[in-house]
């Protein structure tokens, strides 16, 4: 027998490798990022008029196929994103059983090293946010009216601890998006000595704008720019 015959590749399916899991995170990350943008654009209508945002909420509900389609896609994305990150987190733990006495991480960004913190915080926030504004079950500060999104938001944010939590969560989201956004390209195989630095800058700007946009709402409520109707 000739020794030059190649060995067959053995089976490790795509998502069973770390690169596969990262790709899952990147693709679901793209979907979630798209949602965050759309969500922000919708929310900012609160600055126009109460009618505008209430009407927008009504429109979304009037097309249940779209709404539920989006919700299911998002739910699946979130689950996959979390599953992949959890699996990778376990892999990382196993990969270095004995930690360094001293370890200095000087060249990486704070955002990149804290994805495993910013992620769960954002998740906790999302859960609370759903209970707060979607289901209205935890809604301190005022009455919850399914058909008056505007008032729900304003009453919700007038309770300052909630606003503070939202602001902190949005800062975490900012970090998470900053690293996630450019890193997604790297994970999916795009890197270029000229364009990647621009992508990183773009990611930073986008993350800050998104966080600032979201934070502007509770701040406006607390500052009294937006009042209940």
């Amino acid at each position: 027998m000739s020794a030059t015959a190649n060995l067959p590749l053995d089976e490790l399916r795509f998502w069973e490798t770390s690169v596969g899991k990262k790709a899952v995170m990147a693709v679901t990350g793209v979907l979630l990022f798209g949602f965050v943008i759309a969500h922000l654009l919708g929310n900012l209508q609160i600055f126009e008029s109460p009618e505008k945002i209430n009407h927008y909420a009504e429109t979304l509900r009037s097309v249940p196929v779209l709404l539920w389609g989006a919700r299911i896609t998002l739910l699946i994305s979130v689950c996959l994103h979390i599953w992949a990150s959890f699996a990778l987190w376990r892999l990382q733990r196993a990969a270095r059983p004995i930690p360094y006495v001293k370890k200095s991480n000087t060249h990486s960004t704070y955002a990149s090293r804290t994805m495993m913190w910013s992620g769960p915080i954002v998740l906790a926030f999302v859960i609370y946010h759903l209970l707060h504004f979607t289901f209205g079950v935890v809604h301190p500060g005022g009455p919850f009216d399914k058909h008056n999104v505007y008032n729900n938001v304003v009453y919700g944010f007038q309770f300052w601890p909630v606003s503070l939590f939202y602001i902190v969560a949005m800062i975490m989201l900012c970090y998470h998006l900053y690293h996630g956004l450019w890193s997604m390209f790297q994970t999916l195989g795009f890197s270029h000595p000229v364009y990647t630095p621009w992508l990183q800058r773009l990611a930073k700007v986008a993350a800050i704008l998104i966080a600032a946009g979201n934070i502007s709402i509770p701040v406006a409520v607390l500052a009294g720019f937006i009042k209940p109707v």
Partner: peptide, 10 residues
């Protein structure tokens, strides 16, 4: 048993 890259850059 190597873990994944998370594009940190260290």
């Amino acid at each position: 048993g190597f873990a994944n890259c998370s594009n940190i850059g260290e």
